[in-house]
Design a protein around this nucleic acid. Structure first.
Lengths: 170, 170
DNA sequence: TAAGATTGAGTATTCAATCTTG
DNA sequence: CAAGATTGAATACTCAATCTTA
């Protein structure tokens, strides 16, 4: 796509639409494969982050934020993964409000295997399509978007300025 | 990110992780803003596609596929949007199994306003971060990923062999 | 007061089964 | 029998309120 100097609204909205569709389609492909090894996509996201953390443990609130879950939703998600025997809760000694979530040996074994398979899928369905440079550029752009959005998160006041349009439906 | 000739598993998985996080963070930013104008994100996706279709109408099953919904889930989503007066169901004359979903005047007015605001948000939170060339490149890569994934969808056997039918084209 | 975690209520989604039409 | 649409059961999430601790 040769870049226009000044893309119009339709162009911009269309570009973002491609992102939504591309990400959804690829995510589904990957999630289906992960599910085949016995892991819901949400569990995979949790275990993946524990796996790459020294000590294989993170605080519940930190982990919840990383996987974009609400506090309450993450409690229930954790309940299910604990029941499955893949993670354990550990009360924190220094600050008794926090709960550490740590991988069990079974959890570690499962996420190790799932990660190897995941990487294989990514080579096939992403790296194979975009090439190394393309995938790296995509990752770089995504990091920039993430950092920008997270900077604004919580700093964006619910100010009075509204869309110039019809009142909310309801 | 200078591209390594042969990225390892951790690298690849990390790159995809950035995509997941960047997309989630930005999507949430955009969805929050859309919600402020009175539209749930799912409604917006539906109305957006009707808006850019000649005649502002699509069949339910086609629309469901475009927004990545199950058949049953889309029926209920449609129920809610119909109740809000933004779309209407029209039985198809040629094939009485299909239902057309069409925008109402209110729906059109609302999605028009929401789209203008959406474009403004995209300029701020995506175009402003990546630049025109960066955004265009991202859209291009996303299109490639989408087309690849959709080619494989339905052609990828679940566990055993594919059910009888025409051989996959790709 | 504020922050981390949990609970309960409400909502939205998928899956499987059903109905209708081609 | 296949395809589109709908329904009911089950699941998973968010939000608001609560409890505990800093």
């Amino acid at each position: 796509v040769p870049a226009s100097p000044c893309p119009d609204d339709e162009q911009i909205v269309g570009w973002w639409g491609l992102l939504v569709e591309g990400f959804a389609a690829t995510s589904r492909l990957l999630a289906d494969d992960i599910a085949r090894s016995g892991l819901p996509a949400t569990w995979f996201e949790v275990l993946l982050r524990l796996r790459r953390t020294p000590g294989h443990r993170l605080s519940a609130s930190h982990l919840a934020a990383e996987v974009s879950f609400s506090s309450g939703g993450f409690t229930k998600l954790t309940d299910r993964i604990v029941t499955a025997g893949l993670v354990e809760r550990h009360p924190c000694q220094d600050d008794r409000r926090v709960t550490w979530i740590g991988l069990t040996p079974q959890g570690l074994a499962l996420i190790d295997a799932a990660t190897r398979n995941h990487a294989r899928q990514l080579r096939e369905h992403v790296l194979g399509v975009l090439g190394t440079d393309g995938f790296a550029a995509l990752a770089d752009a995504s990091r920039a978007l993430r950092d920008h959005a997270r900077t604004l998160d919580g700093a964006e006041p619910a100010d009075g300025r509204r869309v110039d349009g019809p009142a909310p439906v309801g």
